[in-house]
C-alpha cells in the first residue's frame, strides 16, 4: 500500500518458469546476498522467500546493511487445509510459513520475509538477538503453532496456560479439546 514499489496486479496468476526480477531495491539486494531466495510482488508489497538456513543472517543483513530499523511483527501461517495457494516459481511450499515484517524508518520502506517450515522439524532461528522487540511475537508463534525459535532467550508459552497441551492455531488442533462431562455420563452418580 504505502510502499514505493509500483503496483502490479496479478503477477501471481501466471506461473513463469523464471522468477521475475525484483522491482524493489531492497529485495534485489537480498537476492544478491542470498541467491536461493525468491522475490514476489504481493499486491504492491515486496516479499522475499528465503531459505530457512539464512533466516538469522537475513535479519542481520536487513538491520546492519539495509537500515531496517525495526522488525514490526513475526507470525506464522498453517497451510494444512488450503484450498488454493499462489504459485510462485522457485518456492517449495511447506505446511508452515513464518512471516516477518520489517520497516526501515530512514528509507521509509517495508519488506516482508517468509520462510518455509516443515512439520517434521518445526523450528527456525530466532531473530530476537537481532531485534529484541520481537521476543513476545516469537513466543506467541511458539505457543500457538509449536514452531521453536532456536536461540530465543525465553521460549515459553505466552498466551495459553503453561500446562496447555497442543498448539491452538494449528489447523489440526481441535478447538474443543477439553471433553465436557455431563452428570449422566458419570457412572458414580
Amino acid at each position: 500500500m504505502a510502499d514505493d514499489t509500483p503496483r502490479e496486479d496479478g503477477p501471481e496468476d501466471d506461473a513463469e518458469p523464471v522468477p521475475a526480477p525484483p522491482s524493489d531495491e531492497v529485495a534485489a539486494a537480498v537476492l544478491e546476498r542470498f541467491p536461493d531466495s525468491v522475490f514476489h510482488d504481493s499486491h504492491g508489497q515486496a516479499v522475499v522467500y528465503v531459505a530457512r538456513a539464512s533466516w538469522y543472517e537475513l535479519a542481520r543483513f536487513l538491520r546492519d546493511e539495509q537500515q531496517f530499523t525495526m522488525c514490526l511483527d513475526v507470525t506464522a501461517v498453517d497451510h494444512l487445509l488450503d484450498a488454493g495457494r499462489v504459485d510462485i516459481a522457485g518456492v517449495d511450499y511447506e505446511r508452515f510459513e513464518v512471516v516477518a515484517n520489517f520497516i526501515s524508518h530512514p528509507r521509509n520502506r517495508r519488506i516482508r520475509a517468509i520462510v518455509q517450515v516443515t512439520p517434521a522439524e518445526p523450528s527456525v532461528a530466532s531473530i530476537t538477538p537481532v531485534y529484541p522487540g520481537i521476543n513476545f511475537a516469537e513466543r506467541e508463534v511458539f505457543d500457538l503453532y509449536g514452531i521453536a525459535f532456536d536461540g530465543h532467550p525465553d521460549l515459553t508459552r505466552i498466551l495459553m496456560p503453561d500446562d496447555w497441551v497442543g498448539h491452538p492455531l494449528r489447523k489440526d488442533d481441535s478447538p474443543a479439546r477439553i471433553p465436557v462431562t455431563f452428570k449422566e455420563d458419570n457412572p458414580s452418580r
Binding site: E12, S42, Q45, L72, V77, G84, R85, V86, V99, R110
Partner: peptide, 14 residues
C-alpha cells in the same frame, strides 16, 4: 488467494 500486510496508525501505534 494471496497474502498482504496492511498497517495504519492507531492511537497506540502501528
Amino acid at each position: 488467494p494471496g497474502e498482504t500486510y496492511v498497517a495504519v496508525e492507531s492511537p497506540r501505534g502501528e
